[in-house]
Amino acid sequence: MSIEEIALEAEDRMEKSVTLLTDQLRGVRTGRANTGLVDSVRVDYYGSSTPLKQLANLSTPEPQQILIRPFDQSVVGDIVKAIQASDLGLTPNSDGKVIRLNVPSLSVEQRKKLSNRVKDLAEEARVAIRNIRRDANKQAEVEQSEKILTEDDLATCKDEIQALTKKFETKVNEIAEKKAAEILEV
């Protein structure tokens, strides 16, 4: 593998870590309703576990409410059960056609807990990025021991990988700070 290939693979994996963090943070509550809260709820639909977003149209008609319109009216009961079984802490109200979820405002204590959860998720992403850096550095060292890369190439490669690590850690920090600010905003 060349320096560029090692760096590209590391960059691709780091990008995936940031994407995963973004997806995880979408499900963290803020003070207002967000369809991301229920996107990942899985519903038992004809024997298979299906994400809610594939079974219904999700919207937020009001700042404190999520509206779920199932494409198939026969699954309303299954969706209600899935939401109740999830750890969202939201009570679904159904009229047989649509489901309404009222999202209560967060207390100061809840906001602090959620903010800490965001910090934990961000730290997991930073650890993943550092592990990717370690793997890429090991790959470069293997290439150098096999005489594919010179010592100068190895140093250049490690510098590139470190620069990528810094770039993606900064991205993670920015995303986490933005989400934490969103949560703490009253």
Score class of each variant (00 low, 15 high):
residue 173 N to P: 01
residue 24 Q to F: 00
residue 75 V to N: 06
residue 7 A to W: 11
residue 184 L to P: 02
residue 44 D to S: 13
residue 29 R to E: 02
residue 127 V to D: 03
residue 98 V to S: 15
residue 80 V to T: 10
residue 47 G to N: 03
residue 93 N to C: 06
residue 54 Q to W: 08
residue 86 S to H: 05
residue 163 A to E: 14
residue 153 D to A: 00
residue 94 S to N: 06
residue 133 R to A: 01
residue 36 G to C: 07
residue 83 I to S: 05
residue 143 E to V: 04
residue 128 A to G: 10
residue 152 D to E: 12
residue 58 L to S: 10
residue 107 S to H: 13
residue 25 L to Q: 03
residue 179 K to P: 02
residue 48 S to N: 13
residue 156 T to Y: 03
residue 3 I to W: 01
residue 127 V to H: 03
residue 79 I to F: 05
residue 26 R to D: 08
residue 88 L to S: 07
residue 185 E to M: 05
residue 84 Q to F: 09
residue 141 E to S: 08
residue 119 K to S: 13
residue 171 K to I: 00
residue 52 L to H: 03
residue 115 S to H: 02
residue 65 Q to R: 15
residue 86 S to D: 04
residue 114 L to W: 04
residue 72 D to A: 07
residue 10 A to K: 06
residue 23 D to L: 09
residue 80 V to K: 08
residue 55 L to N: 04
residue 22 T to W: 12
residue 91 T to C: 12
residue 61 P to N: 13
residue 38 V to M: 01
residue 77 G to S: 13
residue 142 V to N: 09
residue 36 G to N: 11
residue 40 S to Y: 09
residue 159 D to P: 03
residue 41 V to D: 00
residue 96 G to F: 15
residue 176 A to Y: 00
residue 49 S to D: 02
residue 74 S to H: 12
residue 93 N to Q: 13
residue 80 V to D: 03
residue 121 L to I: 06
residue 70 P to Q: 10
residue 156 T to D: 06
residue 147 K to S: 15
residue 25 L to C: 03
residue 36 G to P: 14
residue 174 E to G: 10
residue 162 Q to W: 08
residue 135 D to H: 11
residue 94 S to F: 04
residue 61 P to V: 13
residue 154 L to F: 00
residue 178 K to N: 06
residue 38 V to N: 01
residue 116 N to M: 14
residue 45 Y to E: 02
residue 100 R to F: 09
residue 84 Q to P: 10
residue 125 A to M: 06
residue 79 I to C: 11
residue 164 L to R: 00
residue 14 M to V: 03
residue 154 L to D: 00
residue 153 D to S: 00
residue 72 D to M: 09
residue 101 L to F: 09
residue 149 L to H: 09
residue 67 L to C: 12
